[in-house]
């Protein structure tokens, strides 16, 4: 069974989701990757090491990559269709999946947490992760599947560099006329949120951006990363790159500390698989306590400074 995996390059590396999906796909069949970006040697080597045997590589230049990528993938899968095309949840992943779906007339099976092929069946969690459904693709191959981050582990099995074919970006006319005129990378201190062993997240209960230093100091004491709810991202206290949840990052640290966070289901889907969850909230009925290993009913402004002091005193 052939499976195609979508990958986008960032900073000379294949996307984390592409490595996870390639690893999974390699267990199910033969993996080809469609890789968008500069096509650095590192990125290609990573894909090979995780099990890709061949890579089609397209450099989109300054255009938004999705229209051309969708057209090129549609050409690729036109003849001998793979069983499935797998995408992560990144911006470009979703853009390409949507466009490819309309082009090929196939549905998108979204938010998958598990996958089997022949026939293609995906498991996804709905209603805030309380129920799981299994959906079978009944349309003609390929099935288009969007997979949640960290659903599968990335396995470096030491495979050789894949054979690489350059694909010219097809001219897609009007659809392809949007261009990126500036790129801004927001500097981030401390460990990577998605890989960190400890994550300290803050919500609206911090009271305001002036108190955000409490979250940062606690994270620094624990050599952890800082996360946030969408409420505080929307309020402009912190950048979107810190958002944890359904429309942000998915984290599975050893310890997750939620401070001033109510525990909306859209936040919890991004952190509920953490090892130990500690929550501080002044409302005893906050939903976050329903999944916390230790719930402390109290004021973050009282508790967090004392916690920071206690940790400092130990070191």
């Amino acid at each position: 069974m052939a499976i195609l995996v979508f990958s986008e390059e960032t900073d000379g590396h294949a996307s984390a989701s592409a490595l996870e999906l390639t690893s999974k796909a390699a267990q199910l069949g033969e993996v080809t990757v469609f890789h968008v970006g500069e096509g650095s040697a590192d990125a290609l080597a990573e894909l090979g090491a995780h099990g890709a045997t061949s890579v089609h590589h397209m450099d989109p230049g300054d255009g938004l990559p999705a229209p051309a990528a969708a057209a090129a993938i549609a050409d690729l899968v036109g003849g001998d269709a793979p069983a499935a095309v797998l995408f992560g949840m990144g911006n470009t992943d979703r853009d390409v999946a949507g466009r490819l779906s309309a082009r090929l007339g196939r549905p998108v099976l979204a938010a998958a947490v598990d996958l089997s092929i022949d026939p293609v069946r995906v498991t996804s969690e709905i209603l805030g992760g309380t129920q799981q459904i299994i959906t079978e693709a009944t349309a003609q191959a390929p099935a288009l599947v969007i997979v949640r981050p960290k659903a599968f582990a990335a396995n470096d099995t030491g495979g050789p560099a894949p054979s690489t074919t350059a694909v010219a970006a097809p001219d897609v006319g009007r659809s392809g006329s949007a261009v990126v005129v500036e790129r801004h990378v927001e500097e981030q201190e401390g460990p990577d949120l998605e890989a960190a062993n400890v994550v300290v997240s803050g919500g609206r209960g911090l009271g305001g951006p002036d108190n955000w230093h409490l979250v940062e100091e606690l994270a620094a004491e624990l050599k952890g990363a800082v996360g946030a709810t969408r409420a505080v991202v929307d309020a402009g206290w912190v950048p979107y790159s810190l958002q944890v949840g359904q429309t942000g990052k998915t984290v599975k640290p050893t310890v997750y500390i939620a401070t001033g966070i109510s525990g909306a289901m859209q936040h919890m889907v991004g952190m509920k698989d953490s090892g130990t969850i500690i929550a501080i909230n002044k409302d005893a009925d906050a939903p976050i306590f329903g999944i916390a290993d230790l719930g402390v009913v109290g004021d973050v402004q009282q508790i967090v400074p004392k916690l920071i002091e206690a940790l400092k005193a130990r070191s």
Partner: peptide, 28 residues
């Protein structure tokens, strides 16, 4: 597409919940 099965997920259980008495940070 067709939905072939729906099943409840065994959720994470709530653990210990304590009221801050000024010493909760030590428990953390």
């Amino acid at each position: 597409q067709s939905i072939t099965a729906v099943a409840p997920i065994a959720g994470r259980q709530a653990g210990e919940i304590i009221e801050d008495d000024g010493e909760a940070h030590l428990r953390i």
